[in-house]
Design a protein around this nucleic acid. Structure first.
Lengths: 216, 216, 216, 216
DNA sequence: AATGAATGAGCATTCATTCAT
DNA sequence: CATGAATGAATGCTCATTCAT
């Protein structure tokens, strides 16, 4: 009616937000398009003005939310200069995002993987970029001599992501999340990886610094 | 009819094997019970004499194959005595199992996770036991002084499993598996974790700071 | 329960008969599969055990009923020996079939032609055979010198069928069928065509032969 | 905006022409109102300013184009004075119209009949007038003693129209139209009907002209 | 008059599961 | 034990039509 009526853009966002909630709540499969429409306050058909179909909606959620996460990750990393500190920031940021957006986390950690297409056909470039950020940090660490040159950044990034991801899934699925401290988990895991990738102490004898990782 | 007719037990196994193949080939959702029945050479209804329903079939596959994997894992570990060597054997065995049973790997790494119930309701005790084996190795390593006491075995086992798992998924999904050397990946990942968990080299001068990472 | 339970074949026929009635009553498009199922006394899904889909059901009705009509036509023609008498029998039989099976007539004359596929893609071989019967009667008449040789049997059969068909459509669509005597119509139309195709009466005085083709 | 903007009338015609093309191309059912709107260069809603709905558009096409055809038919007949010659002109004109407007022919011969309403409810007065023209020619021929009095003009007109129509449909649906000579078909069919309706030779004896139809 | 974003009714079809034989 | 014909619930999507601008 008035110019304050939800704009076209708002409507699209309302659909996305509604979809995240409904997918998280009932699961992707059980979520009915009409559920999402009702929650978004639009007609069923309206969803198809903005999205190709139900699965597209899921993939768009992935794309757009991932984009935001990537931006936030970049910002978070920009505040640190030391490669190892940035790796810590990476893990911290990863878990914080999950903790702060539980519904979205459910969609990312659980529902998205139930999309046959997502797993078998889709090429999640955004996810790869997210991983590449870690790979680049490893390379940077190697250039500065803080990380062993033998470490394969590519393998490391999958291993690291897998570790974070598995813990994230467990947290998302955990019935009692309070027993689960993601902050501490982040610290432990990142410590484990940093030590694992760190250059060994320069010499056995008078190593004033037995912990090169931290001192680098 | 004749004595050569497949026995009851054989029939159950044939159904399971057929299901693994069909699930791997078409995906859990797209797999029709009748597809499995045909491949197993039984009638549709027969499947319901042995399994509660389609999802139960998937979960039974998980249970039984996991049991076998666990046994094989135990045997493999029994051949090593050093905790660190056993951890290496753990990773090696994990990847080998996957490499040797591609269809089953597809089911475990991809299809199983599309079961809403598996993720949201089911308690995969067998998986936990599989993980516990690793946790126990960590504890053992800690007792023998090879692994830092601060390492949380529980968190470590999820991180380690997550790392192995993510790499396994990538291998399963990879179009060109030949470019992917799981053996090498196992070595790298386990090396990374072992270094990460290892006790720091005994510095000649007592380090005042047992937790350098946190204090850095 | 007992062996008198409707057999598999009966069930298929019941579905076909129900479909004819429902199609005739509500029209092909408006007819719901569930309507047909209810009228046939089976579950919706059962229909798909016997027919590929709703359109297939329509086309199967065409094929099977057309087959029956063809058989009956052949029988009816077999009772006459004179080609011209057989042509009369053809038209009589055509209209009688329509009069005796009004629902089927509605499907044939109206609903079937609303199937885009029937008109644009389908090759109604059965219809062609039905037409060929007429074409053959024309050829036979030509051989016996009763029908002019210049008559193109192919064109004649389409024209004849078109004439019968149009009148049939008008009868089917007519609100007041009693005002419409198909028997008489058959006689008139066939008379018109027979005269049109007939060899001219042998003129007593040797005509210079205005129709050389016919004299052959 | 400018004075060259298509006028209201032009717009209506553009919609009609676009509809004929789209209906002929995709079929009535598959044709989307938005397809027609795009081709006509107007917004979807605009169509509803000129036509009640999609079916109305189809019926208006019928009405208006039929009107034109009728006018052209009258003009064509006016050029002949002999009733039999005019009947020939009728058939010739019918087929020529079809040959010259293939898209419209498709709509008339195929798509229009897929409109449930056109067949079941609509009273195609224009078509009746088109047929009446033929009926009148028959009556005229009867008055002049060229056509047998027993011929029912009403039945004859349906039979004649049915014959022309069926051949038209076959031509429209024919993949290879070049193999189909409508001009010749017209001649044959009209010859068949004229002979069929013609008065028999006055007497067996000195009928110098046993074939009044042909000789007229 | 013209627009085009929004609406929402409507239904064919699949396939896991059952159960009479 | 085994069969397999029969069941029937359950829903994503299209697109003609409307109406606020």
């Amino acid at each position: 009616m008035t110019s304050t009526e939800p704009s076209r853009l708002e409507k699209r966002d309302r659909i996305i937000d509604a979809a995240v909630e409904v997918f998280a709540d009932k699961g992707y499969r059980a979520a009915r398009v009409s559920d999402i429409a009702r929650k978004a306050g639009v007609a069923d058909g309206t969803i198809y003005l903005y999205f190709k179909n139900k699965e597209d909606l899921l993939l768009v959620i992935f794309e757009e939310k991932m984009e935001t996460l990537l931006d936030q990750l970049q910002s978070a990393l920009a505040m640190e200069s030391d490669p190892l500190a940035r790796i810590r920031a990476y893990a911290r940021h990863h878990f914080r995002s999950i903790e702060e957006h539980p519904a979205l986390a459910q969609v990312f950690q659980v529902e998205l993987r139930q999309s046959h297409r997502f797993l078998r056909e889709y090429r999640p470039e955004k996810l790869w970029r997210y991983l590449d950020v870690f790979g680049d940090l490893v390379r940077e660490g190697q250039e500065r001599g803080a990380i062993r040159a033998e470490v394969d950044p590519f393998l490391a990034q999958w291993a690291f992501f897998g570790a974070l991801d598995e813990i994230s899934i467990q947290w998302v699925l955990a019935r009692k999340r309070e027993r689960f401290n993601l902050e501490q988990a982040a610290l432990q895991v990142v410590d484990l990886f940093l030590r694992g990738m760190a250059c060994p102490p320069p010499s056995p004898h008078p190593p004033q610094n037995p912990h090169p990782t931290a001192s680098a």
